[in-house]
């Protein structure tokens, strides 16, 4: 405030890189108006969209702004891909999920870090008849669904040998074939 008339009226802008600043009259808040490249915010404490870091080290050591790190599981044409401070990925694609889009989302399995999207995350597609509680989720890597008693296959879609009636919804039943009259 240059109108008070004291030697301390004008103070240097609290902005990095010699950025200019302005005082908002109503709130007396100081706002940097020309933050260094890649940064933004009242005091240049934030990274631009698509980048994350802590350029002023407000929350620990200084972390320069860098591009969202989401294991190639974000789309460069999207906006708001990660949290500008923590880097948490916010728009995972290819059915991935997690802080760094580093796992498959619920109901999918596979290799989220594979380079070919086709190898990434596939739907569990658990058989509703053979899966415990009709669950739709499966193990992250193998994709194994949780099968009812005597049910087999990754997706719990078949009975073990010697068992039948998958559709019962309670597991497969023993065939009870007479061992003398049966071929298998």
């Amino acid at each position: 405030d240059s109108t008070v008339g004291s030697p301390r009226d004008c103070q240097p802008c609290p902005c990095p890189g010699g950025s200019t600043c302005a005082v908002v009259p109503k709130t007396k808040e100081v706002v940097c108006t020309n933050c260094p490249a890649g940064t933004t915010g009242k005091s240049c404490e934030l990274c631009d969209d698509g980048f994350f870091g802590d350029p002023l080290g407000q929350d620990g050591p200084v972390r320069a702004c860098r591009a969202c790190k989401c294991n190639d599981n974000i789309d460069p044409n999207a906006v708001g891909n990660c949290d500008r401070e923590t880097g948490e990925c916010l728009k995972c694609i290819y059915n991935t999920d997690g802080f760094f889009c580093d796992r498959c989302k619920e109901g999918f399995y596979g290799k989220p870090l594979a380079s070919d999207p086709k190898d990434k995350c596939k739907p569990c597609s658990c058989s509703p008849y053979g899966t415990v509680g009709r669950q739709t989720s499966c193990l992250q890597v193998t994709g194994q669904c949780t099968c009812l008693p005597h049910v087999t296959n990754r997706d719990c879609s078949a009975c073990e040998p010697g068992y039948f009636n998958l559709r019962s919804g309670t597991g497969c039943e023993r065939c009870n074939c007479n061992p003398i009259g049966s071929t298998d």
């Binding site: 933004t40 915010g41 934030l46 500008r84």
Partner: peptide
């Protein structure tokens, strides 16, 4: 600049 909201990302 006609509007400055330093903490926002305006799309």
């Amino acid at each position: 600049t006609v509007l400055h909201l330093p903490e926002k990302v305006i799309i």
